[in-house]
């Protein structure tokens, strides 16, 4: 027969408490383990991409004839964006200042730079109609418009196949980034866009960016019926 027993068994309550602690701790442990696996997976992806980029660079260097036909630059760009998404997820889990995350981010930035340089070379050698945007962003404190700018660039990247966007954390301590900043004489007036070789400061709307792109790309790539050539933004500063 059922017995109603109100009396508390403190031992039982304590055991439940420890069991709860164990499960709770396991949640943290499991999360940590998964993040470590994610870091390893991203590292492998980055290494793979690094080899691919290096292969193309080598091809450019050793072949007398430029391997334009076999150039799979757009595939590499997609891989790069894919890694960015995964990296962002790890950043959310670990926190933006986590040392492991920062190492991955630095490595990713180097890959971006390599791809950017490769793209420029390929565009020149193979007469490809491509526009590259190096986008320098900051955190919410240093750049209130960066989130908006990032969103607009992502939308444009999806819309226009000729567009390649490379995002760089302006404050990331990385020598190649410092070099780029110094080459283009970039100021800490974020967001900063280096479109092909021209520098633009401040938030650029979708319309403004489309207008800028038209100065680099044949008009029919954007809007086949349009014929007029728009002017560039007043904030543009040509590199030398």
């Amino acid at each position: 027969m059922e017995v109603n027993e109100k009396k508390i068994s403190w031992v039982r309550y304590l055991l439940i408490f420890f069991l709860t602690l164990v499960i709770f701790g396991s949640g943290f442990y499991l999360s940590n383990t998964i993040v470590e696996k994610k870091i390893t997976a991203i590292s492998k992806l980055q290494q793979g991409l690094s080899i691919d980029i290096l292969s193309i660079e080598t091809q450019f260097s050793i072949l007398t004839q430029v391997p334009c036909k076999n150039l799979n630059e757009s595939t590499l760009a997609k891989e790069l964006y894919d890694i960015a998404l995964k990296l962002s997820s790890v950043g959310s889990s670990l926190g933006e200042n986590n040392p492991d995350y920062l190492i991955l981010k630095k490595y990713y930035s180097i890959l971006e730079i390599k791809h950017w340089l490769l793209l420029k070379k390929a565009a020149k050698e193979c007469q490809m109609d491509l526009v590259s945007v190096a986008y320098f962003y900051g955190d919410k404190k240093s750049c209130q418009n960066c989130e908006d700018q990032g969103y607009i660039l992502t939308a444009l990247r999806e819309k226009y196949p000729f567009l390649r966007v490379y995002s760089f954390d302006y404050l990331l301590p990385l020598v190649p980034l410092e070099t780029i900043k110094s080459i283009y004489n970039l100021k800490n007036n974020l967001p900063v866009l280096v479109i092909n070789d021209d520098v633009y400061y401040g938030l650029k709307s979708q319309e403004e960016l489309e207008t800028i792109f038209k100065t680099y790309i044949k008009l029919n790539k954007l809007e086949p019926t349009e014929t007029s050539t728009p002017t560039t933004s007043s904030t543009s500063t040509k590199k030398n």
Binding site: L30, S31, I34, V35, K38, A41, I42, D82, L85, K86, S89, V90, S92, S93
Partner: peptide, 8 residues
């Protein structure tokens, strides 16, 4: 991808 899943 499993990498982008929220595993916090």
């Amino acid at each position: 991808s499993w990498i982008t899943l929220n595993t916090t």
